[in-house]
Amino acid sequence: RSRTTFTAEQLEELEKAFERTHYPDIYTREELAQRTKLTEARVQVWFSNRRARWRK
């Protein structure tokens, strides 16, 4: 699998969701996946990476 490139629109959606919760449940992730046209797995990994960046 090659590296996922996120569009500005996708990042906006993901960042907005991250402001609400750092640990979205499966329903939230599924909804985000549909809205951003990404897979739920990509959304999950993005949140994991985003939390790592947030901790630094």
Rank of each mutant, 00 (worst) to 15 (best):
R1E: 06
R1T: 15
R1F: 13
R1S: 15
R1K: 06
S2L: 11
S2W: 04
S2C: 03
S2R: 07
S2V: 06
S2E: 11
S2G: 09
R3Q: 11
R3N: 12
R3D: 14
R3F: 14
T4R: 08
T4N: 14
T4K: 12
T4Y: 07
T4S: 12
T4H: 06
T4E: 12
T5L: 09
T5C: 11
T5D: 15
T5Q: 07
F6R: 05
F6D: 04
F6W: 06
F6E: 12
F6K: 10
F6I: 07
F6Y: 06
F6M: 08
T7E: 03
T7L: 04
T7Y: 06
T7D: 06
T7I: 03
A8G: 08
A8Q: 12
A8W: 06
A8V: 07
E9L: 07
E9M: 12
E9C: 08
E9P: 11
Q10Y: 02
Q10D: 03
Q10S: 01
Q10R: 02
Q10C: 04
Q10L: 02
Q10M: 05
Q10F: 02
L11I: 04
L11E: 14
L11D: 11
L11R: 08
L11M: 12
L11N: 06
L11T: 11
L11S: 14
E12R: 13
E12F: 11
E12S: 11
E12A: 12
E12H: 06
E12I: 12
E12T: 11
E12C: 05
E13T: 07
E13G: 03
E13I: 15
E13Y: 08
E13K: 10
E13R: 02
E13M: 10
L14G: 01
L14M: 08
L14N: 01
L14V: 03
L14I: 01
L14D: 00
L14S: 01
E15F: 04
E15S: 04
E15V: 04
E15M: 03
E15R: 05
E15L: 02
E15D: 02
K16H: 12
K16D: 08
K16M: 08
K16N: 12
K16A: 10
K16Q: 07
A17V: 14
A17L: 10
A17G: 08
A17P: 02
A17M: 13
A17F: 06
A17Q: 15
A17Y: 08
A17K: 00
F18Q: 02
F18C: 01
F18H: 00
F18R: 01
F18T: 02
F18A: 01
E19L: 09
E19S: 08
E19F: 06
E19A: 14
E19K: 14
E19W: 03
R20I: 09
R20F: 03
R20G: 09
R20L: 11
T21C: 14
T21P: 01
T21D: 13
T21V: 10
T21K: 05
T21Y: 03
T21E: 14
H22C: 07
H22M: 14
H22I: 05
H22K: 15
H22S: 05
H22E: 06
H22P: 12
H22Q: 14
H22G: 02
Y23D: 11
Y23Q: 01
Y23A: 08
Y23T: 08
Y23P: 04
P24D: 02
P24F: 01
P24M: 01
P24W: 00
P24H: 00
P24L: 06
P24V: 02
P24I: 04
P24C: 04
P24N: 00
D25V: 00
D25I: 01
D25H: 02
D25N: 07
D25Q: 01
D25W: 03
D25P: 01
D25E: 04
I26E: 14
I26W: 12
I26S: 14
I26A: 15
I26N: 07
I26T: 09
Y27K: 14
Y27F: 11
Y27S: 15
Y27M: 09
Y27P: 13
Y27V: 13
Y27D: 11
T28N: 03
T28Q: 13
T28P: 00
T28H: 03
R29V: 14
R29F: 08
R29C: 10
R29M: 13
R29K: 02
E30I: 12
E30R: 13
E30W: 08
E30D: 12
E30G: 13
E30F: 08
E30S: 11
E30A: 12
E30K: 10
E30H: 11
E31R: 10
E31T: 15
E31C: 10
E31F: 13
E31K: 11
E31I: 10
L32C: 01
L32W: 01
L32I: 07
L32S: 00
L32G: 00
L32P: 02
L32K: 00
L32Y: 03
L32E: 00
A33I: 04
A33M: 12
A33K: 07
A33S: 03
Q34C: 07
Q34Y: 10
Q34T: 09
Q34S: 13
Q34F: 09
Q34R: 11
Q34V: 11
R35S: 07
R35C: 08
R35G: 03
R35Q: 06
R35N: 06
R35H: 02
T36D: 01
T36R: 01
T36Q: 00
T36H: 05
T36E: 01
K37R: 11
K37T: 05
K37N: 13
K37L: 04
K37G: 14
K37V: 03
K37M: 09
K37D: 06
L38H: 05
L38P: 01
L38F: 04
L38R: 02
T39R: 01
T39W: 00
T39P: 09
T39I: 02
E40M: 15
E40L: 08
E40P: 04
E40A: 11
E40H: 15
E40C: 08
A41M: 09
A41Q: 11
R42D: 15
V43R: 02
V43E: 02
V43S: 03
V43F: 01
Q44E: 12
Q44W: 05
Q44I: 06
Q44R: 09
Q44H: 07
Q44Y: 15
Q44S: 15
V45K: 09
V45F: 07
V45H: 07
V45N: 13
V45Y: 08
W46E: 01
W46F: 02
W46T: 01
W46K: 01
W46Q: 00
W46Y: 06
W46R: 02
F47P: 03
F47I: 02
F47K: 05
F47Q: 00
F47W: 02
F47Y: 06
F47H: 01
F47T: 00
S48M: 15
S48D: 10
S48V: 07
S48P: 04
S48Q: 07
S48G: 08
S48R: 12
N49P: 04
N49I: 06
N49E: 12
N49D: 12
N49M: 07
N49A: 09
R50W: 01
R50H: 04
R50Y: 03
R50M: 10
R50F: 04
R50T: 03
R50V: 00
R50C: 02
R51I: 05
R51T: 01
R51V: 08
R51D: 03
R51K: 00
R51Y: 02
R51G: 03
R51F: 04
A52D: 08
A52G: 05
A52N: 15
A52T: 07
A52S: 08
A52M: 09
A52L: 06
A52E: 14
A52H: 04
A52I: 11
R53S: 14
R53P: 04
R53C: 10
R53E: 15
W54E: 15
W54H: 15
W54G: 13
W54S: 13
W54Q: 12
W54T: 10
W54F: 14
R55G: 08
R55E: 07
R55T: 09
R55M: 10
R55A: 08
K56V: 15
K56G: 15
K56H: 10
K56I: 07
